[in-house]
Amino acid sequence: MEVAQWKAHFNSGPSEVYRALSTPLGRSRYWAESAGEHDGMIRFVLPDGRTDDSRIERAVKDELYQLRYFGRTVTFTLTPDESGGTDLTPQLPRPRRRVRRRPRRSAAAPESLRRLRRRPPQPRPVPHPGYADT
Rank of each mutant, 00 (worst) to 15 (best):
V126Y: 12
R105A: 13
V126I: 08
F44L: 04
A32W: 01
Y131C: 03
D53V: 08
G85R: 04
D62I: 03
P127C: 00
H128D: 12
V17R: 05
K7P: 05
A4I: 11
R98L: 05
P129I: 07
V126L: 09
N11K: 12
G40D: 10
R58N: 15
A108F: 10
V74L: 12
P123N: 06
L21C: 00
P121T: 10
G26P: 09
L92E: 06
R43S: 08
A108S: 11
S34R: 05
T51E: 14
T75K: 05
P95V: 12
D48Q: 14
R105L: 10
S28V: 02
I56R: 03
V45A: 14
A132K: 12
E16F: 04
G84Q: 08
P93M: 12
P47C: 13
S54Q: 04
T51L: 04
G85Y: 01
S34M: 07
R68W: 13
S34N: 07
R27P: 13
V45E: 08
S112A: 04
E2F: 03
Q5N: 13
G36Y: 01
T23G: 00
P103M: 15
Q91C: 11
G130Y: 07
A32I: 06
R58C: 06
F10C: 00
E57Y: 00
P47N: 06
R72L: 15
W31E: 07
G85A: 03
H128V: 01
A4G: 11
D39M: 13
G13D: 11
W6Q: 12
Y65V: 08
R58D: 14
A108D: 12
I42K: 03
D48W: 08
P80Y: 04
P24Q: 08
R98H: 14
Y30R: 02
R100N: 11
A59C: 10
A109S: 14
T23H: 08
A4Y: 14
I56T: 15
V99E: 10
Y18A: 00
S112P: 01
P90R: 04
R58L: 14
R124D: 02
D62L: 05
T86R: 02
R27N: 06
R114A: 12
R55C: 06
R58M: 11
T89S: 13
D81K: 05
R58F: 02
V17W: 01
P14R: 00
I56E: 00
R98K: 10
L116R: 13
A8I: 09
T86Q: 01
R105Q: 15
P80W: 05
R50W: 02
G36M: 12
